[in-house]
Computed example of a mutant assay.
Amino acid sequence: MLSGKTILVLGAKGLIGQEVVQHIMKKNGHVIAADVTSDETASTNITTHVCDITSETDIEQLLNQYPDIDGIVNCAYPRNSQYGTDALEVSSSSFNENVAIQLGSCFSLLKHAARHFKSQQKPLSVVLLSSIYGIKAPDFSIYEGTSMTMPVEYAAVKSGLIHLAKYFAKYINDSNFRVNCVSPGGIENGQPAPFLSAYKDKTLGHGMLSAKDICGSITFLLSDEANYINGTNLTIDDGFTL
């Protein structure tokens, strides 16, 4: 599906990023794996690169270094130490900082990706990771009996990402520059049993997803099979939002 394509994956060492990298390689794509730290990887299908997505300079230099990329997947998830505080306890400065480093960094990425496309005039597909909580209000009942919450910054950022994708797709106004979102349901990552059970009751039976469960949709949007799919948000949640 991705044979001959070079895909830049930002946040490549994260929970989702690692699986996306492996899936792209299985589809015969070459990966540029970028994160704030880098490990040397012995493979002909992967190039590692250090990049801080919150640095506009890093983003610009990275895209300049790889002019022949065919796609970009943003799996990066930068946040400050106060992230996840109860909504009524979040300070305005902390909220603003998290929105800036998450949504703001994605804006910088899209801006430079658009410039890159206009300069290279080569088809480019960008995939952003939004969330079910970018399209619906949180279901706070599933957090009862746990210390978990749905961060208010998360909801603000994920909804903003969906509109940013639409904005840039329309602004560039070219079928060869595609920007789409994937909105997964919850990703299992060691959450407590009461939460997992409550979450599963809201789905059609599968419950929480694994990071692998969303990789097929991401690689589809990167591929030529998804030509003319633009400005779209693809929801993968086993019916959670029904």
Rank of each mutant, 00 (worst) to 15 (best):
P123A: 10
S141K: 12
I135T: 12
I59M: 15
I172K: 10
S91Q: 08
C106M: 11
Q18Y: 09
D86M: 06
S105Y: 04
Y143R: 01
I101Q: 08
C181G: 08
C51E: 01
I162D: 01
T203E: 04
N28F: 03
T235Q: 13
Q82W: 04
A113H: 14
G160Q: 08
L209Y: 08
I229C: 02
G186V: 08
Y167E: 05
G207A: 08
C181H: 07
V31D: 02
A226N: 05
G4P: 01
L124E: 03
S81Q: 09
I142D: 00
L103D: 00
E19C: 03
R115E: 08
P192S: 04
I135A: 11
V99G: 11
I142E: 02
L129N: 05
M25N: 09
R79L: 06
N28P: 00
I142G: 01
K122R: 14
L129W: 10
I214T: 07
I53E: 01
F168T: 13
N176L: 07
I187S: 02
N96G: 02
R115S: 05
A193V: 14
K166A: 13
T37M: 15
S119A: 14
M208R: 09
E60R: 13
I187Y: 03
A198F: 03
G239C: 02
M25V: 14
G84Q: 07
N173D: 15
F117M: 01
Q102V: 02
C215M: 12
I135W: 03
Y83V: 09
L2K: 02
G14M: 08
D213F: 07
E144D: 10
S119H: 12
K122F: 00
V36A: 03
H112M: 03
F140I: 10
L129A: 04
L234R: 01
G29S: 12
A193C: 03
F107H: 14
L2Y: 03
P184L: 13
L15Q: 14
L103S: 00
K200S: 13
L161F: 04
I172M: 12
E60N: 12
V126N: 00
S108V: 00
V50C: 10
S159Q: 11
A100E: 09
P123T: 13
A226M: 04
T44V: 13
Y171R: 04
I16H: 06
L242D: 12
Q121Y: 08
T57P: 00
E56S: 09
S197E: 15
N189H: 12
G104F: 05
E188T: 03
F140M: 06
T203M: 04
S119F: 08
H49E: 15
V9T: 07
S43D: 03
I236W: 05
D86P: 00
S175H: 09
L222N: 11
D52H: 12
K202P: 00
I32W: 06
S141D: 10
D52I: 07
T235Y: 10
D86V: 02
E19W: 02
H49I: 14
